[in-house]
Write a protein that binds this DNA or RNA. Structure first.
Lengths: 171, 171
DNA sequence: GCTATCTATATTGTGAGCAATATAATTTCA
DNA sequence: TGAAATTATATTGCTCACAATATAGATAGC
């Protein structure tokens, strides 16, 4: 028998699994608060973008802008926006100048939700027991990692260290 | 007019959005490699657990064990396992001693995939351009955060710092 | 001006995630 | 022992994600 061991394939050595698990944990933490506002987590993200655009007097915004900000494609965003329109949170309208474009804006109800959502991020922070410093540090670290992430189709780059046989390879 | 500003609701100030985005980016990076093995990302995670159990001679394992390790409920895992059974990767069998339990084991095909998967984590690391140290540090940081995360239904805890009005609240 | 190309959005189909509920087997304990 | 509670898995219904494709409007070259 071989009895080979593959530490690089052990679940708890994977960075991907930690990120995946934390992402679901955070979403689950938001869920009860957002449910009180009649929102799902992705719908909340759409509203974050629209509320911020409203602050800057940039409403309406095209669907394309939402896709860029959220890093989601139209296959996800279009049905999401349809549900939000049905829920009375947003409006969608074809642009007159360029009929390919659908412009998205907030309804009064969608805008009004911002007041109720105001407390949500801090509330989550409190419930999670994470310190503000820890959260900010981690956020900035992840944002840098996301920014340096290779665009899809980019050529493979080597790891920044000399190659070896790491016992626990956090792929 | 009010012209109020809500920095705590700005998308890029949210820790949740960074985690969510990175999680999807990583999954997308795995996708082409796993596709070559005929796997989806969650199916790969199931195999990681089963391969490790095989190393320890603990196969078969109950569905409950997979749910615990992956932090997923049966509503996700049961159909996932059914698809993997159909694909010939695993076997599912009711336990004789306790007929509530379904024991999951690897088929030869499912076990054999481990050889091909061996290179995947390091391959992802290379493509991502992240250094091994950076990945390990981040992984350990996230694991600590996940471990300290409150169980569902736990009472709200305050943030570890004095309350104030943080400009950018990473909820 | 006409066709090829490009751009913006929508649609289809599959596979997660997850809440809520259902079903059936086991255990508890009065 | 026998009903109530518990445990393990499955099912249903809804909402993402995302690849692949479709559609229609705008733009570029010739």
């Amino acid at each position: 028998m071989e009895d080979e061991v593959y530490p690089q394939l052990h679940l708890d050595n994977q960075l991907c699994f930690s990120v995946y698990t934390l992402s679901r944990l955070i979403t689950q933490a938001y869920q009860p608060l957002l449910r009180a506002l009649g929102l799902t987590y992705p719908q909340y993200l759409v509203l974050l973008v629209l509320w911020q655009a409203e602050e800057d007097k940039r409403l309406p915004v095209p669907v394309r802008y939402l896709c860029e900000r959220l890093q989601l494609d139209t296959g996800t965003v279009t049905p999401l926006l349809k549900r939000m329109e049905t829920a009375g949170l947003i409006r969608r309208a074809r642009s007159a100048e360029d009929e390919r474009i659908v412009q998205v804006s907030l309804t009064p109800a969608g805008l009004a939700l911002r007041e109720q959502a105001q407390q949500v991020p801090l509330d989550i922070l409190c419930r999670s027991g994470v310190s503000l410093e820890q959260a900010q540090t981690l956020r900035d670290q992840l944002r840098r990692l996301i920014l340096q992430w290779p665009a899809d189709g980019a050529p493979p780059r080597g790891p920044a260290t000399a190659p070896g046989t790491p016992e626990s390879d956090p792929g």
